[in-house]
């Protein structure tokens, strides 16, 4: 199977992720969209690692996973605290700050 397919797949995943961020109101799902985008990038990295025949791509992917995990921790903390305050996880509800 051509490596290009992996790249195409990662492109599709990246797009799905960004569309999720743009369209979904639930903060958690929007956040998952971001994670999807990160993982799309991971896939790209791994693919290119394979393409170039070195390990950097995979190593970077591992780093990214750790970072993503840390991001999840922070993100969930924020979302939870907002949910507790407002009783809603809709990101559209949070629009006191504007213009």
């Amino acid at each position: 199977m051509s490596l290009v397919n992996y790249l195409v797949l990662s492109g599709i995943l990246f797009s799905i992720g960004s569309i999720a961020v743009l369209t979904r109101r639930n903060a958690i799902i929007a956040f998952m969209g971001v994670e999807l985008m990160l993982n799309a990038a991971n896939l790209t990295l791994v693919t290119f690692g394979r393409l170039h025949g070195d390990l950097h791509g995979q190593v970077i992917a591992f780093f990214v996973m750790v970072v993503a995990a840390a991001e999840v921790v922070i993100g969930l903390a924020i979302i939870v605290s907002i949910f507790r305050t407002r009783g809603s996880a809709s990101i559209d509800d949070a629009n006191l700050l504007k213009s």
Binding site: A30, F48, E71, I82
Partner: peptide
């Protein structure tokens, strides 16, 4: 404050994703 935090976080993560994708492309 919480709203600021949420917005900052979501958009920050969003931009990180682009940043990372850029890294991936450059690596490629």
């Amino acid at each position: 404050s919480q709203e600021a935090s949420l917005k900052y976080f979501l958009l920050g993560a969003f931009s990180s994703a682009f940043f990372l994708m850029g890294i991936a492309l450059l690596y490629g």
